[in-house]
Simulated scan of single mutants.
Amino acid sequence: MEIDIGIPENDRKAIAAGLSRVLADSYTLYLKTHNFHWNVKGPMFNSLHTMFETQYVELAAAVDEIAERIRALGEKAPGTYGAFAKLTQIEEEEGDPPAEEMIRQLVRGHETVARTARSVFPLAEAGQDEPTADLLTQRLQVHEKTAWMLRSLLAE
């Protein structure tokens, strides 16, 4: 059945493609945060272990919301590691970085998701897609605040 929600097909496809990049960045950041939650060590262990858990739980809910918006636009949401690897701008961490490096990487990750989300705004505006613009605004608020809080742990 054709989709007739007031957004032209070309705009829907472009918006969904942008949201797919947001989804890939968000899922990759989720995985990295969960990895760091499991493997953090040192004097900040307890506080970082708890903080990282709060962050990955929030990201898990976010990826579902982003994927559902892609589906509402009539497109298939990417859902494999391979698809995410092609779309994400966030680098995987395969080593065992110290806690402060974990924090730095997560700051960069949240800033990356914020930049990706911000880059989709013109597409949402062009298609008069208010629900996507609202979703992007919510995601920006979370990622910018989380990056600030993580950066604050590194301040001297």
Rank of each mutant, 00 (worst) to 15 (best):
D4G: 02
I7K: 06
P8W: 07
E9Y: 15
E9V: 14
D11R: 10
K13A: 05
A14K: 15
A16W: 08
A16G: 01
A17F: 02
G18M: 06
G18Y: 01
L19S: 02
L19R: 06
L19F: 01
S20I: 04
R21V: 09
V22A: 02
L23R: 05
A24P: 02
D25H: 08
S26K: 03
T28P: 04
K32N: 09
K32T: 01
T33V: 14
T33I: 06
H34V: 12
N35C: 13
F36A: 07
F36N: 00
F36R: 04
F36E: 00
H37N: 07
H37W: 15
H37I: 05
K41C: 08
K41S: 09
P43F: 13
N46F: 14
H49M: 07
F52T: 01
E53D: 09
E53M: 05
E53Q: 14
T54L: 10
V57S: 04
V57K: 08
L59A: 11
A60N: 11
A61Y: 12
A61C: 04
A62D: 05
A62F: 14
A62Y: 09
E65F: 05
L73Y: 01
G74P: 14
K76F: 09
K76T: 13
A77E: 07
P78W: 09
T80A: 10
Y81N: 12
G82N: 12
G82K: 11
A83Q: 12
A83M: 11
F84Q: 01
F84E: 00
F84P: 00
A85G: 10
T88C: 05
E91T: 12
E91P: 10
E92Y: 07
G95F: 02
D96A: 15
P97S: 13
A99E: 07
E100N: 05
M102C: 13
M102T: 10
I103Y: 02
Q105R: 13
Q105F: 11
Q105E: 02
L106P: 03
V107M: 09
R108T: 09
E111W: 15
T112C: 04
V113R: 06
A114G: 06
A114I: 15
T116G: 00
T116A: 02
A117Y: 08
R118H: 06
R118L: 04
S119Y: 08
S119R: 01
V120Y: 09
V120L: 14
V120W: 08
F121P: 00
L123A: 09
A124G: 00
E125W: 13
A126I: 07
A126M: 11
Q128G: 08
D129Q: 01
E130D: 11
P131R: 08
A133W: 03
D134G: 05
D134V: 13
L136K: 00
T137I: 05
Q138P: 01
R139K: 14
R139Y: 00
R139A: 04
R139T: 03
R139H: 04
L140H: 01
L140Y: 13
Q141N: 11
V142K: 06
H143D: 04
K145R: 07
K145A: 09
A147W: 14
W148A: 09
S152A: 15
S152L: 08
L153M: 15
L154N: 14
L154I: 03
A155Q: 06
E156H: 13
